[in-house]
């Protein structure tokens, strides 16, 4: 590349009227060793641009956003809470009705036995009847 052309391009470069291709020509010129002495002060600039172009990101991209995770946890928490409350309510009802059933059977048993006992007591009437008969005849 002839020097005059480079100088010309450099002039245009600082006015920002060069094309990308022309800038690549400049890059190429300044990346080699024999740069004309009066242009050497521009070398670090282009050198630096070339260095920066080589920088690379070293971290991998984890495509698992934490946002989603949190969302599902909250959904699960709400579900657990509602089922827990529902279960609690249902359990209480079940316990109450169970106790009621227990009480009912006990009470039926008691009343059955009571009636049973009461029917036996009826036989005692026999004594009253006979004593009455005796007293009545004696008094007469």
């Amino acid at each position: 590349m002839e020097l005059a052309n480079i100088e010309n391009l450099l002039e245009k470069y600082f006015e920002a009227t060069t094309t990308v291709q022309e800038e690549q020509t400049l890059q190429l010129y300044f990346s080699q060793d024999n740069v004309a002495p009066h242009l050497q002060e521009y070398q670090p600039m282009f050198q630096h641009f070339a260095n920066l172009r080589g920088e690379q990101s070293t971290r991998n991209v984890p495509l698992k956003p934490r946002k989603n995770y949190l969302k599902w946890i909250s959904v699960a928490a709400v579900f657990l809470l509602t089922t827990g409350l529902f279960f609690n309510e249902w359990n209480e009802q079940r316990l109450a009705s169970e106790a009621f059933e227990d009480f009912k059977t006990t009470m039926t048993m008691v009343s059955k036995n009571f009636n049973n006992g009461a029917s036996h007591i009826n036989h005692l009437n026999q004594f009253t009847e006979t004593t009455n008969k005796i007293f009545i005849t004696e008094n007469n």
Partner: peptide, 23 residues
């Protein structure tokens, strides 16, 4: 991806910050 990283690094200076920004 590396272009994003380099732009972020130019503005934020720190390597770590630039990686965070890219991610």
């Amino acid at each position: 991806k590396d272009k994003l990283y380099r732009l972020a690094k130019r503005l934020l200076v720190s390597n770590e910050e630039a990686e965070d920004a890219t991610q």
